[in-house]
């Protein structure tokens, strides 16, 4: 196990071995895979401020290749990773969130996570205004102009499809029915990399000392 190496060479500096096996118990990852993820975590968490936590700018740098500027989606992803709401992502939070993105994670967990991403104001509903805000944000990001009436029509049709009780907002049940009919909406919720994180990233294996 990982603890037997502790006296010889320090591994997972900043994250205790016991915690590693605890994380392995509560997620789909093995201790080996967690060690590989820890290498990734160390890389991300030291890219700007080397303090053992991922700051929003660091996540932004990793996902958008720039630490600057506002990004609605990045903010939501960061908020969902930051379980403790202390403004940084710690390793256990990183692992908990990535666990949902595991190819074998339950689809209900993915559906729920996606719902929370889109529920910008965290009201328990995805509202029209929120969907509109996200579409507009993407149009701005990609410098695409779309006439207002076309935008309204897209929102209108989306809600006609998703908002079964026609109250102008999508609740969790409606969301579930909707995404199961449009499974491609969950594509972003699965990271194939996570299935075999230790072999997909041989450079991480180099630092890994645990054998299966």
């Amino acid at each position: 196990g990982c603890c037997s190496h502790r006296s010889r060479r320090p591994i997972n500096r900043g994250f205790a071995c016991g915690n590693m096996s605890h994380l392995a118990d509560e997620t789909r990852f093995t201790v080996n895979e967690l060690e590989a993820l820890y290498e990734l975590f160390k890389k991300l968490s030291s890219s700007i401020i080397d303090d053992g936590s991922i700051h929003k700018e660091e996540l932004q740098l990793a996902l958008l290749q720039t630490p600057q500027g506002e990004n609605l989606f990045l903010d939501r992803v960061f908020d969902l990773f930051d379980e403790k709401k202390n403004g940084v992502i710690e390793f256990d939070e990183f692992v908990h969130a990535l666990n949902v993105f595991h190819p074998y994670a339950p689809i209900d967990d993915k559906i729920d996570f996606a719902f929370r991403l889109y529920d910008l104001r965290q009201t328990g509903f995805i509202e029209r205004e929120e969907v509109k805000q996200m579409v507009i944000a993407i149009l701005m990001e990609s410098d695409v102009k779309l006439p207002d009436d076309i935008l309204e029509e897209i929102i209108e049709k989306t809600f006609a499809d998703a908002d079964a009780d026609k109250d102008g907002k999508i609740n969790k049940e409606e969301w579930k029915v909707f995404v199961l009919r449009h499974p491609s909406l969950l594509k972003n919720m699965t990271l194939p990399y996570l299935k075999d994180v230790t072999t997909v990233f041989p450079s991480y294996i180099f630092h890994t000392e645990v054998e299966d």
Binding site: A62, N71, V131, M134, L191
Partner: peptide, 25 residues
């Protein structure tokens, strides 16, 4: 053709694409 707003958001938003995280050098 009907463009689903969520389809648009999930396929276009880089901030939601965590795979980028694994491509950090």
């Amino acid at each position: 053709p009907f463009l689903n707003a969520f389809e648009f958001i999930s396929s276009m938003s880089e901030g939601f694409d965590l795979s980028n995280m694994f491509e950090t050098k």
